[in-house]
C-alpha cells in the first residue's frame, strides 16, 4: 500500500468505524420501513430543524393571535378567539384608516402597499438598467460591479444611519444644496420627502443584489442570438424588447418575487432612518407589529401576532400568484 493510501485509510478510519457501527441499525430500519422509510430517515434532521425554527413558531404565533392581554406566557393569556383579527379588520372604509377600529394598522398597511409598489417598481427598473450597463464592455468593469454591490454588504442599520446623517437638517445633502445656492429641504421632516427617502434608500441598499441576479441572466443569453439579430439588422430597442427581455423573464420573476417579499418586510433601514415619522408617514407593517408587540407602553402580543399572520398570508398569496404566472409563461 502506498504512503498516500495509508494516510487516506488512517484519516477515514473514524468515519468507517462510525459507518460500521451504524450499519446494522440502518439495515434493520430499511428492512422495517422500506425505501420510503430510508428517505424519511435522511430527511429527518432537516425536518427537525424546520419544525423547531419555522413550524412551531408559526403554530405559536397562530395561538398567540387568538389570545388577549399583555402577559408573555401563552398559558397565562386568555383565549379571545378571532377578536384580534376583528379588531384589525373592522373598518367603515378600508381606504380611510381613520374610519378603522385600529387606524394605525391600516395606515401601516397602506404605507406598506405604497412602499411595495414604488420600491419594487423602481428597484426592478433600476436593477435592470444597472445590469444592462454593467453587461457592456466598460473600462474597469469589475470596479463598477463592486461599486454597485458594495451597499448590499452593509448592515441595514448602518445604511439607515449613513443616510440619516446625509439627510438630516444639518446633513451633507443640505450642505451641498446650500453651497449650490439652493434652499435646504427638510428631508426627514416633510411627509413626502421622508417617504421618498425611505424608498430611495431601500433601493440604493439592495440594488446591487438584484442587479447581480439580472446580470447573471444577461450573461446566460447566448451571444449568437445577438449576432443573428445583428445579421438581420435588428434595431437595439427591438433586440431588447424581443430578445433580451423575454429571455430575462425568469430572472426578472425571481427579482420581483424576492424584492416583493423584502419590501413587504421593510423595517430596519427605514426604522433607523425615519423612525416611522413624521407622524405615521413612514410607519410600515413590520414596525407596527414590532411596536404593538414589544415597544409600545401597552403591549399587545396577540394583536401583533394576528397582524403578522395577516402579513404572512398576503406574502404567501403574492408569491403563489407570481410563481403560477411564471409557470404558465414557461409552459407557453
Amino acid at each position: 500500500m502506498s504512503l498516500g493510501a495509508r494516510v487516506g485509510a488512517a484519516a477515514t478510519a473514524p468515519l468507517r468505524a462510525l459507518a460500521a457501527a451504524l450499519d446494522p441499525a440502518m439495515r434493520g430500519w430499511q428492512r422495517l420501513a422500506g425505501r420510503g422509510g430510508m428517505i424519511g430517515l435522511f430527511l429527518l434532521p432537516n425536518l427537525a430543524i424546520f419544525t423547531i425554527f419555522v413550524l412551531v413558531p408559526i403554530g405559536l404565533n397562530v395561538a398567540y393571535s387568538m389570545t388577549g392581554g399583555a402577559q408573555v406566557f401563552l398559558a397565562d393569556r386568555p383565549f379571545v378567539g378571532g377578536e384580534q383579527y376583528a379588531r384589525l379588520l373592522e373598518c367603515e372604509n378600508h381606504l380611510r384608516p381613520r374610519t378603522c377600529r385600529d387606524d394605525t394598522f391600516w395606515t401601516a398597511v397602506w404605507n406598506t402597499a405604497r412602499f411595495v409598489v414604488l420600491q419594487v417598481g423602481l428597484m426592478t427598473g433600476a436593477a435592470l438598467v444597472t445590469a444592462l450597463i454593467l453587461n457592456r464592455s466598460l473600462p474597469a468593469k469589475g470596479f463598477w460591479r463592486a461599486v454597485f454591490f458594495f451597499p448590499v454588504l452593509l448592515s441595514p442599520v448602518v445604511v439607515g444611519l449613513i443616510w440619516r446623517w446625509i439627510l438630516q437638517r444639518q446633513g451633507l445633502a443640505n450642505l451641498v444644496m446650500v453651497e449650490g445656492g439652493l434652499e435646504p429641504v427638510n428631508w426627514l421632516v416633510d411627509r413626502f420627502w421622508a417617504f421618498a427617502a425611505a424608498v430611495g434608500v431601500s433601493v440604493w441598499a439592495h440594488l446591487g443584489f438584484y442587479a447581480l441576479i439580472l446580470l447573471a441572466g444577461l450573461q446566460a443569453i447566448p451571444k449568437d442570438l445577438y449576432e443573428a439579430a445583428e445579421m438581420d439588422g435588428t434595431r437595439p430597442w427591438r433586440v431588447f424588447r424581443r430578445i433580451t427581455l423575454p429571455l430575462l423573464t425568469p430572472n426578472l420573476a425571481v427579482v420581483v418575487v424576492l424584492a416583493l417579499i423584502r419590501a413587504v418586510q421593510i423595517f430596519d433601514e427605514a426604522y433607523v432612518l425615519t423612525g416611522g415619522g413624521p407622524g405615521t408617514a413612514t410607519m410600515f407593517l413590520t414596525q407596527y407589529i414590532y411596536e404593538t408587540g414589544f415597544a409600545s407602553p401597552v403591549r399587545n402580543p396577540g394583536l401583533a401576532a394576528a397582524a403578522s399572520i395577516l402579513m404572512a398570508g398576503v406574502l404567501v398569496v403574492l408569491t403563489l400568484l407570481r410563481l403560477s404566472r411564471q409557470r404558465r409563461a414557461a409552459q407557453r
Binding site: 447566448p222 449568437d224 442570438l225 449576432e227 443573428a228 445579421m231 424581443r242 430578445i243 423575454p246 429571455l247
Partner: peptide, 13 residues
Amino acid sequence: LAMVFQSYALYPH
C-alpha cells in the same frame, strides 16, 4: 449575406 451559426442561434422563446 445570411449566416447559419454553429449553435443555430434560434430564438428559444
